[in-house]
Design a binder for these strands. Structure first.
Lengths: 234, 234
DNA sequence: CGTGGAATTGACTTACATCAATTTGGGTGG
DNA sequence: CCACCCAAATTGATGTAAGTCAATTCCACG
């Protein structure tokens, strides 16, 4: 188990104890449902490598992805207090996961109150990202939404060392990207071409290259405050 | 301080201690900003009466409301771990609030670990509601969004005893309702007329009457699972 | 090479936005 | 008690961003 990157700064002993509490790693192929809506949970998933999506399906076959997880994220830690999830979780790419049994999470938090704080912070950060997505879905147009999500993903991947320079791997389909943005794949395709032709960003072949981050942020009205990057909670 | 209705079941001593930790009540008129994005927080707000909104403004004057709080909600408990908020909080109606200083929240959670669990659950429930709003904003059409939000508000208000029978007070403007739904006030007006003429629900004069809850839920594809009503976390 | 999923493009449709008047209704002062 | 006032609600006419449908074209992989 090489990587273990929590978004929150925690002490050495805490990290050691957390690492010891984990089961795995376990590998999953792409497009695999790893947590099903409504099923009782007794462990939570730490994403070590790959991309995970939380999503909900509608009866007519439409799907809304409500969150994308990057390596280092606890994907369903909220399930620890909720007992079950209101949504599904699936792999977007091949993923390497570790499981944290809830009984061990309980032990950990009893032993290290600061870990409770870090875990709670982590779920609150997810909620903040949900809010920003609500703003995109409710008020931004297609190109702004796409630009905003690219900014967010670049920022979050940089933090965990999964992006370097001005590019990062994003091996998902345009349709999956569209399912994040509340758009159709066809329209996302046109909008990505616009971004490319405007010299802002290029998302092709599972890879994103940001040519003008400033302009991309300007277009999207991106403000990283909601990512709480200054806040290594402890 | 008459009312104190947490969404989570907690024991007598915990409730007593929490009540003792509160400052207030304090009354605010409608349309008042009570927490500003980015400002450092040292207390969190418990909503005793009225309706609060979390929202974000865009530079062109558009606004997206990301959450509506009903009485009994801790409006910005997430600020306890985050340190500051990524959004503003304002009163939609005249409100009665109480403040829980974070130092006292810390004392409380040290004394009663079960309260930590209840508080954490409460913020996770807010996040779940955010996700459902993402689905509405991303994938449901105007009438479905309106129907869905009316179902949600009725459910949540029933839980805290702020609705009875098939109607409840919702003293907000159509524009504010539209700001929740990612629509314009004009279009919300047309959609509310549709709901009325179809005999499903009537939202007029600050009051909602649900004439056919079943049909309203069917239209919206409403499923209360995401409200975790069976889960009085403790 | 061939094959199937993903990306791309064009033609056309539609849901919601925008703009611009009215109309309504609750509160208030004469 | 009534008339006025103003914000909110309502309605109609028109514009447009994004959806839908239907072909291609592009690749990665066997």
């Amino acid at each position: 188990m090489k990587k273990l990157r929590l978004r929150c700064e925690i002490g050495e002993p805490e990290e050691e104890a957390l690492r010891a509490a984990l089961i795995g790693p376990i590998d999953f192929p792409a497009e695999t449902v790893v947590v099903r809506r409504g099923e009782r949970l007794n462990s939570s998933i730490l994403l070590l490598d790959g991309l995970l999506a939380r999503y909900k399906d509608l009866s007519d076959g439409q799907r809304q992805i409500t969150h994308i997880h990057v390596p280092g994220d606890f994907a369903d830690l909220h399930g620890y207090t909720l007992g079950y999830l209101d949504h599904n979780v699936m792999t977007l790419t091949p993923c390497r996961l570790a499981r944290a049994p809830h009984v061990r999470v309980l032990e950990l938090t009893n032993r290290f109150p600061s870990l409770t704080r870090a875990f709670w912070f982590s779920t609150n950060l997810d909620a903040s990202i949900h809010r920003e997505w609500e703003v995109s879905l409710g008020r931004r147009n297609a190109i702004e939404r796409a630009a905003h999500l690219l900014c967010e993903l670049q920022s979050r991947l940089l933090v965990v060392g999964a992006a370097e320079g001005n590019s990062f791997r994003l091996p998902i389909t345009q349709n999956q990207f569209a399912e994040c943005l509340g758009l159709t794949g066809v329209h996302v395709n046109r909008v990505l071409r616009e971004l490319r032709e405007a010299g802002l960003a290029d998302f092709r072949g599972g890879k994103v290259t940001v040519h003008d981050r400033g302009a991309l942020e300007g277009l999207a009205e991106f403000d990283a405050l909601y990512l709480y990057l200054d806040k290594p909670a402890n």
